[in-house]
């Protein structure tokens, strides 16, 4: 009997996970590569690669010496390793997965540099000015201020 309940529960959890995945907008696999987590998680959280297509990550990695006004340059061999990881796991990468409502805004050859300029992002985050002026938020790209589990890939709270 307990076994039956356990199996039923397991199936239910699976179904819920699949439904979440289909709804598609609450979970994206986080960065798991240690070097990428460290190098790209120092100034902001390491953004899940599934938020952008591979060509966007390549463009970002090619311009680290002027990265949104920051010098985020890395030794070439580290940059190459990180780029490979990001491209593999990008929304269109062989191991990657994107959010459908985000990706439908990305033009077939477009190379957006910001997640926070995607119309899907702007629609989900259409908050009054005072929310963005909160000293704990600072900028739209500070996902962790509002999604405490963003580091683990969850954007549901």
């Amino acid at each position: 009997m307990t076994r039956l309940v356990a199996v039923a529960l397991a199936i239910l959890l699976q179904v819920m996970a699949v439904m979440d995945a289909l709804a598609g907008s609450k979970y994206l696999p986080p960065v798991t590569d240690a070097l990428t987590r460290k190098a790209c998680g120092e100034c902001h959280m390491p953004f899940p690669p599934g938020f952008l297509p591979g060509r966007s990550w390549s463009a970002l990695m090619g311009g680290l010496d002027d990265h949104f006004g920051e010098d985020a340059a890395l030794p070439p061999e580290q940059a190459a390793q990180i780029e490979a990881y990001l491209v593999q796991n990008a929304s269109n990468g062989p191991n990657g997965r994107g959010l459908r409502d985000f990706m439908r805004w990305v033009a077939p050859a477009g190379t957006p540099q910001r997640i926070t300029e995607n119309p899907a992002f702007l629609r989900e985050h259409d908050f009054p000015d005072r929310v963005w002026r909160d000293p704990k938020v600072v900028t739209k790209s500070n996902c962790l201020a509002c999604h405490p589990r963003a580091d683990q890939g969850w954007f549901d709270d």
Partner: peptide, 8 residues
């Protein structure tokens, strides 16, 4: 502290 550019 808190990073004034990123909020981290």
């Amino acid at each position: 502290g808190r990073n004034a550019k990123t909020g981290r």
